[in-house]
Each structure stands twice: as structure tokens, then as C-alpha cells.
Design a protein around this nucleic acid. Structure first.
Length: 446
DNA sequence: TCTGGGGTCCTAGGACCC
DNA sequence: TCTGGGGTCCTAGGACCC
């Protein structure tokens, strides 16, 4: 059996752990740049605030109802997430961390009442150690476990629901769910199924998988089989990322290339550090810039440039150099830009090779460049990598941003202030402290 | 005024190979 | 008049997820 453990209103719950006065009050959490509403407490949901709603359209409603507003605080949510996942690993090693607030568990050898009791144990353990409430759905396949979780959240008191092998129970559940609410089927595919006369989960379950394959590819076929109780989507252990993206909308519009370069350089530094933290190297970097698609009266420009490396790298300096080159190739001065980002792709990861070897080529199975791998280049590269190590070392000892690259912008450093915000930096008016990850932001109790 | 960010997988079609 | 058959790899675009 698979269990899906899903944190209730996760971001809101994280805020509530450190501010219990938020209990039973309407709370929302905003996306980056304070743009959209991406998490709502149950009280906020019942005010009719939809998921993903632009904040400016709902500001009046929020104020009128005394809704507490928070900017996203991913440092806090990420840390709380890993605490929750660690709790789950306490019960079984077979945990798939599916997203920041969800995990699939493989459950073997327990059934019926003992299974329910075990799930209650998990729930209260997670709550005791993190303060985060979770719901649990259990079934024979991941797709059905998702469904069970939905029922656990909406229809049960204790937040646990098990879809047993009872045939009529499953039929009843599937009859009462729309196809577009099934995991893996969204609006577009839902519409395609409608045109075949399929509207409910039960109708989808009873269709010919081969016919669904023609319509929704093998992905759709798998969903049909999963609904019948045949597991087609296995539990996956956490794999290193295959691509890394860092992008942000700007706090205000930007036209000049220096500002853009500063924004992109900061994204590159973050992306490079993510890359190194999962012990990968990238073969390609892509940067993109775009105007505001909602300003339809303004001229629009959206473009990207990818640069391939002759040898895979994880070196911030090389990535910065490439990103600068790419930006110069696509930048056009006449536009007002709204967003920029960087994507590292074609990542390679350390091989499983247990041999004790310090040569990067062997650790990563690197294809070296026939024309540049001369001795002097190797030496240069070695020194550059040591340089990055030193910077990482200082920043991890003295705090993030203690040493920065010139391309990231030196205005703030010169004025010795952190209040000064560049145009590109995102808005974040309602951010709570990084309670669990910064000594100077620990919760004070008086 | 104001509209997020970060991923994965699959397929079709083009390019190449013998 | 008439020009094969069987593969692999790569990429862009589209779909989905949270």
C-alpha cells in the first residue's frame, strides 16, 4: 500500500507554529514579489479567496476581513519541510519526498485497524516534533492514495482515510470525482476526456486503457490502470535535480543592462551554489529576460540564450562569465523588463563509483575537451575551483553574502547598509523571520 | 500601481548511422 | 517510370505536478 502524507495548508501552518495567535484566524501567504496568494488557511478559503489569486485584486477583501498576510519565507518553509520528512523517515526508510509539503510512503505488512493506528501515530509524531498538522491517504496505488488524501482532508475528522479493497467503496468514490480532479489530469486533458464522454473517475476507470493511450499518451494509460488498482507509478527515491532554475520578477521595471546584469548575476550565484550542493556540474547555462506579459499595451519581448560549455563546470566564475556573454547577445535597450532568470541544465552527477579517486574526471565521468585540456589550463582551473571553495567557506562561516562577486552589485557593500534595495530586488513586505535558520532571528519569548 | 517560481516526463520530427 | 529498411539520439514543445 502507498500512503500520501500531505501537510495541511503548509505555509500557513509554518507561520502558525511560530505565531500561535494566528490559530483560527484567516491567514494567507503570498508568492514571491508579493504577487499572488498561494497558501490559505481554512478560514481564508471560506472567505472565497481562490488559489493563485493576484493579491491586488483581493486586497480590499483581505483588509475588510482582517486577514493576516505573509510574504513567502522559503528559508523557513524549506527547513520545516525537512523536519517533517525526517519525522516520516523515523517510521520507514521508504519515503519519497514528492514536494515541499508531501511525501509518499510504502506501507508493507499491516492492514485494517492496526494500519489506521499506525497512521495516527505518524500524525501525532509529526505534530509533536514540528507543530505541523498533516493528512494521510492510503490506497493500493499512488493515484488512489492521492484520492484518499483528498477525502481525508475534506470528509474526515482525524485526517486519515484508507481506501480498502472493498469494490463498492471504490466505485462510490470514483463516481463522485470529476476526471480533472484526478492526479495527473488537468483542465486540457479533462476537456479531451469530456469529448470522449468521460466525466467521472468511474467512467475513466472503466474505459479501455488503449483508447485512453491514443488520447493522453502512455501517461493517461497509466492513470487508468492505477485507478483499477494496478500500480504503475513506483515509489522513487530522491534523485539529484536534472536542471536548476533561479528566476524572479523584479520589484520594479528595469531597462538598463547594468541592472539586468546585477539581477542575473545574483541568480547565477544562487543557482551555482544549488548545483554544488547536490554535487553536480552543468554542461549548459541558459539565461532569459522578459517584459511584463500583463502590460499588453507595452511592446513585448521575451527571449533566451543558451551557452554550452566545452567542459562541464560548477564554477561560479565561469557561469558568471557565460551569463554575461549571453545577456549581451539578447539585450535590447528599448524594452521595460519585468523578469529574468537562469537555467542550468544537462547536469551530470557523481558516479556511484566507490573507487577512491580525487580526479573530477573520474568522479563525474567528465568528457574533457580535446583542445583545451593542456597542463596550464588544468592548473588554472584548479586554482579557480580553490577560489570558489574559499568564498563558500567564508560565507558559510560568517553568513551568506559576507563575500560577494563584483557582478552581484557593490552599492550595498559600499554604503554598508542592507536597507538599500536595488530595482531588481523583489518585494517582500510581510516576511516573517527565519526563525529556525538564523541565530539573530530566533523567536524571542518574553 | 499591482499578476510566482521550480520542476518532470513524453512525443514527434529531424538528423544522423549502417 | 522506377531509388530500402532499420535503427539511435537529440530537441522543442506541450502536458502535467506542487
Amino acid at each position: 500500500m502507498y500512503a500520501l502524507v500531505d501537510c495541511n495548508n503548509f505555509y500557513v501552518s509554518c507561520e502558525r507554529v511560530f505565531n500561535p495567535a494566528l490559530e483560527r484566524k484567516p491567514v494567507v501567504v503570498l508568492s514571491n514579489n508579493d504577487g499572488c496568494i498561494i497558501a490559505r488557511s481554512n478560514e481564508a478559503k471560506s472567505l472565497g479567496i481562490p488559489m493563485g489569486a493576484p493579491m491586488f485584486k483581493y486586497k480590499d477583501l483581505l483588509l475588510k476581513n482582517n486577514v493576516m498576510i505573509y510574504s513567502s519565507n522559503y528559508t523557513l518553509y524549506g527547513d520545516m519541510s525537512s523536519r517533517v520528512m525526517n519525522c516520516l523517515k523515523h517510521f520507514t526508510p521508504e519515503v519519497e519526498v514528492y514536494s515541499i509539503d508531501e511525501a509518499f510512503l510504502c506501507i508493507k505488512g499491516i492492514n485494517g485497524d492496526p494500519l489506521f493506528k499506525e497512521m495516527q501515530k505518524i500524525k501525532s509524531f509529526v505534530f509533536q516534533w514540528t507543530g505541523i498538522p498533516v493528512s494521510i491517504g492510503i490506497a493500493k496505488t499512488k493515484t488512489l492514495a492521492k484520492l484518499a488524501n483528498r477525502i481525508a482532508k475534506k470528509k474526515t475528522k482525524d485526517g486519515i482515510y484508507i481506501i480498502s479493497n472493498n469494490h463498492t467503496e471504490l466505485e462510490y468514490i470514483l463516481k463522485n470525482i470529476r476526471v480533472e480532479d484526478i492526479w495527473g489530469i488537468s483542465k486540457k486533458w479533462g476537456a479531451r476526456l469530456h469529448s470522449l464522454g468521460i466525466f467521472t473517475g468511474l467512467q475513466l476507470k472503466q474505459s479501455d486503457p488503449r483508447k485512453i493511450k491514443q488520447c493522453l499518451s502512455v501517461v493517461g494509460e497509466r492513470i487508468v490502470r492505477e485507478l483499477t488498482g494496478v500500480s504503475c507509478i513506483p515509489l522513487e527515491v530522491t534523485q539529484p535535480r536534472k536542471s536548476i532554475m533561479v528566476s524572479r520578477s523584479f520589484g520594479s521595471m528595469i531597462s538598463d543592462i547594468d541592472n539586468l546584469k546585477e539581477a542575473i548575476s545574483n541568480h547565477v550565484v544562487v543557482a551555482a551554489s544549488k548545483l554544488r550542493s547536490q554535487s553536480s556540474l552543468c554542461n549548459s547555462i541558459c539565461i532569459f529576460i522578459q517584459t511584463n506579459r500583463f502590460h499588453i499595451q507595452e511592446p513585448q519581448y521575451k527571449t533566451a540564450k543558451e551557452i554550452l560549455f566545452s567542459e562541464p563546470t560548477q564554477n561560479t566564475l565561469e557561469l558568471l562569465k557565460a551569463s554575461d556573454k549571453a545577456l549581451k547577445l539578447i539585450y535590447k535597450p528599448k524594452f521595460r523588463y519585468h523578469k529574468a532568470g537562469v537555467i542550468l541544465s544537462q547536469l551530470i552527477v557523481k558516479t556511484d563509483n566507490k573507487m577512491i579517486s580525487v580526479k573530477a574526471e573520474e568522479q563525474f565521468s567528465i568528457q574533457t575537451d580535446l583542445f583545451s585540456s593542456t597542463f596550464t589550463n588544468k592548473k588554472k582551473q584548479y586554482r579557480r575551483d580553490k577560489f570558489i571553495d574559499a568564498i563558500d567557506g567564508i560565507n558559510s562561516k560568517l553568513g551568506k553574502g559576507s563575500v560577494i562577486y563584483g557582478a552581484q552589485g557593490i552599492q550595498k557593500k559600499l554604503k554598508k547598509t542592507t536597507d538599500l534595495k536595488s530595482d531588481w530586488q523583489m518585494k517582500s513586505y510581510y516576511r516573517s523571520p527565519a526563525y529556525t535558520t538564523r541565530w539573530d532571528e530566533l523567536l524571542k519569548v518574553s
